[in-house]
Design a binder for these strands. Structure first.
Lengths: 240, 240
DNA sequence: CGCCGCATTGACGTTCGTCAAGTCTAGTGG
DNA sequence: CCACTAGACTTGACGAACGTCAATGCGGCG
């Protein structure tokens, strides 16, 4: 058996439970393995796709870390999300057959290319995949609702607290520490995502450090009191 | 033929081109007609579904106007969108089999109930429907990207301008005026959607009136200069 | 070693939120 | 039909939170 072929099979992928449906039989697994056309490497700073580019495929992140961002002609720029291993990007492209944002690798990455027509074809046959695709899209919608809530009604501290908790929780689900993390993005990118200026992000980090909630050394963050962070996120009613 | 049956058929619905795929043959149309289980009336102020409720169906709005909003236990409250005839709501419920927001009718409404398992079943057979469902979900994701951009990087005037232009454009696509509209929501609901306080919304309306950009009489709005509104939305680079 | 990008910190200004008072409108009941 | 009321809206005064500008610090890399 060709080792290259093994490497590209979802059925052998340790991230399968993150990006693929569970409980498939052998035959279904075999069909799923046909989903991934190729693997692709994306170097840090390079784009996986850009705004306006023709949409052909969804991408599953195998390793690495991405940001997706909207850049309008008039100079506005907004990070719409940060994505890590096991997450799917490219969903924005389906509606108009063109991508509407840029996906930029924040560290060297490897992704699985899943041609969308193949996804649609196989999900007509494999009900579990069909349902899974729907769930992934719905999950993205719900995630964005959460971001809207954050941007619309939280203050700077609350936003940064919510951001850190969300990141560390997703990392924990991938086997990393519950309390320690390395930020792959700059203060400016965090700020763009949170609707804040980079100085405000920096100041808020400093404030958290003063209060003993986190330790920060450049991009290395250690969470000392997840409870305090959680309290910030939940304390809209009391302090406003 | 039973007139009730005619009334419930998508194939006879004047909104079909808004909420259903185009270019179906007779047989496919017939399958599509099986999508809508029943029509339901929702009175102004009532909810179509609420946070935590079991998810069973997507809903197509036939008449009326809805808001969807998140309400957290700690008192935060955020309007995540306003929906009008021909639009689909309930997508948030797919991922966890439970709705994660409330859908409230802002005026008496009539909606088509489309059981989701039936949608999945039929879209396995009718490729156009399958693709359509994917597009609807992708469109919602892209819409929310736009809201994030607004909440993250626009000032009050810019947000309100974007909001008005978006509303009037969607109304125009439904045969209403390009320049006149009746707001179905309160200043507070607009503010919640835009991440502003109701006083700021009111003040910004007043400012637009002073500048001759719009006429406002309570909930009746006439847009005098769509160009000025558009300029506000696009003027991030120049004025910041 | 020196440069460059990223991060931090301070001083100051703007925008928007908060609180409060007052107006308008639609709906209700006498 | 009109007076009354509750909710929605407007407007003003003030303050807090955050943005802006600028100076400086720090760490990695050629």
């Amino acid at each position: 058996m060709n080792p290259q072929a093994i490497k590209v099979a979802c059925s052998n992928c340790n991230l399968r439970e993150l990006c693929m449906p569970l409980g498939l039989n052998a035959q279904e697994l075999q069909r799923i393995d046909e989903l991934v056309a190729v693997r692709r490497k994306v170097k840090r700073g390079d784009t996986l796709f850009t705004n306006g580019e023709k949409f052909t495929s969804l991408y599953a992140i195998r390793t690495g870390f991405f940001k997706t961002c909207l850049a309008t002609e008039d100079g506005r720029d907004q990070v719409t999300g940060f994505q890590m291993a096991g997450e799917i990007i490219g969903l924005d492209g389906i509606v108009n057959d063109h991508h509407t944002c840029d996906a930029v690798a924040l560290e060297d990455a490897e992704i699985c290319v899943m041609p969308f027509d193949r996804i649609e074809e196989i999900s007509r046959e494999v009900t579990a995949l069909q349902h899974h695709v729907h769930k992934i899209m719905s999950r993205e919608i719900v995630r964005e609702h959460g971001v809207m809530l954050m941007l619309g009604s939280m203050r700077a501290e609350e936003r940064l607290a919510a951001f850190l908790l969300n990141l560390v929780q997703r990392l924990h689900a991938r086997g990393f520490s519950q309390s320690e993390l390395v930020l792959r993005m700059t203060r400016e990118e965090i700020g763009s995502y949170l609707g804040l200026q980079l100085e405000t992000v920096s100041r808020t980090f400093s404030k958290f450090v003063e209060e003993g909630i986190v330790e920060v050394k450049q991009r290395h963050v250690r969470i000392l009191s997840a409870e305090d962070l959680q309290r910030l996120v939940n304390n809209a009613a009391e302090c406003h």
